[in-house]
């Protein structure tokens, strides 16, 4: 099976993996929307959606169906091609990040090891970072192409917010990389399995990273781009139907991927704490499945935290947002980095 000197089995394996990850992402994203509404309800002493199916589990399907069948509207004054490009970009960038996340312990078979990771590249975390930095285009293009003042303002807000919060995020990340010594996601997980989770060494870094993740996903309290009470509906105001669905979905996929990244970076990824799972003597596929489950549990926890925060903390004002990013988080991240550096040097001595 070689064509143009490519191992097609390899391609097939990756294709299956990619397809399943995309499917998983969609699935999780769908149910995160449900979870969001449910949790919101509970926190406000309500029940949340409970009509479509038992406990409302078909609610996301209903919503999806509704979005699909609604009328598509493209404003006359909009820039047609870019208007269509925007949601697509948002969707793609949110999906691409998941390629470098290790979803579980590799499956060891007789024919070799199948990593549960699309690409274990040398600079895995940098890829996450680069994709995050591209993510802003979806919002900007969509907001600009709508040819609407509110959309434009929201897009500009979103762009400056994301660019600003990338910096402390990167700085916090650097401290992690100091302790690990590698950019490979698989090695970051492995080193945590060996030495304990990074959240223990890097509590401050974790907090910074988490706050930045909130801002990058445009989640409350940083959801300025869609601040409905000043901007009507934000950057996707002119969108309807599935294009709107793409934007909304992308946000949830972003949440999912961010949770996965946070889990991987600070909470040991698919590592099960306090136990040595290798000693159980389980089948490798079973072990992988368990580790996958553990990771999903962690992700679920973070998704919950995302939602929890959304329904607790009010939205920041724009200047407060910028002040927090530039005047608080960046210095803090620098301090964190310097302390880590000093400790590392001291330990090495």
């Amino acid at each position: 099976m070689y064509l143009l000197a490519i191992d097609l089995w390899f391609i097939l394996e990756k294709a299956i993996l990619i397809a399943s990850i995309i499917g998983l992402s969609f699935f999780i994203a769908m149910y995160t929307t449900l979870a969001e509404r449910k949790v919101a309800g509970w926190m406000q002493d309500r029940h949340g959606p409970n009509r479509a199916g038992p406990f409302g589990i078909f609610q996301p399907l209903a919503d999806g169906g509704k979005l699909f069948f609604k009328e598509e509207i493209i404003p006359l004054a909009a820039n047609r091609s870019l208007f269509l490009l925007g949601p697509g970009l948002a969707m793609i960038t949110s999906l691409v990040t998941s390629t470098v996340i290790p979803w579980g312990a590799p499956v060891v078979t007789a024919n070799g090891t199948i990593p549960l990771q699309v690409a274990d590249v040398d600079m895995g975390i940098l890829i996450v970072f680069s994709v995050v930095s591209i993510g802003v285009y979806g919002i900007m293009i969509g907001g600009w192409a709508s040819n609407n003042k509110f959309s434009l303002i929201a897009a500009i807000r979103g762009a400056s917010q994301m660019v600003s919060y990338e910096l402390p995020m990167g700085l916090a990340l650097i401290a992690v990389l100091f302790t690990t010594g590698s950019l490979k996601m698989s090695e970051i997980v492995a080193s945590q399995a060996a030495n304990g989770w990074h959240v223990i060494y890097q509590p401050l870094g974790f907090i910074i990273f988490f706050i930045c993740a909130l801002a990058e996903c445009n989640r409350t309290p940083f959801d300025l781009p869609e601040a409905e009470n000043e901007l009507n509906f934000g950057y996707h105001q002119e969108y309807s139907s599935m294009k709107l669905g793409f934007y909304l979905f992308a946000e949830y996929i972003n949440m999912f991927v961010s949770s996965a990244v946070i889990s991987t970076l600070y909470f040991g990824g698919y590592d099960i704490p306090f136990v040595n799972e290798a000693a159980w003597g389980l089948q490798p596929w079973l072990l992988s499945a368990i580790s996958f489950g553990v990771l999903m549990a962690k992700i679920a926890f973070f998704l919950f935290v995302f939602i929890w925060i959304r329904w607790t903390i009010p939205r920041f004002r724009y200047d407060q947002l910028m002040n927090l990013g530039w005047k608080k988080l960046i210095p803090l991240a620098l301090v964190n980095m310097i302390i880590t550096m000093a400790v590392m040097l001291w330990l090495k001595k």
């Binding site: 949790v39 926190m43 002493d45 309500r46 929890w308």
Partner: peptide, 16 residues
């Protein structure tokens, strides 16, 4: 504090 308050409401009797 706010987070704890909202969290505690998860377990409160539903008003609806």
């Amino acid at each position: 504090k706010g987070m704890l308050i909202t969290f505690s409401h998860l377990f409160k009797r539903k008003a609806t």
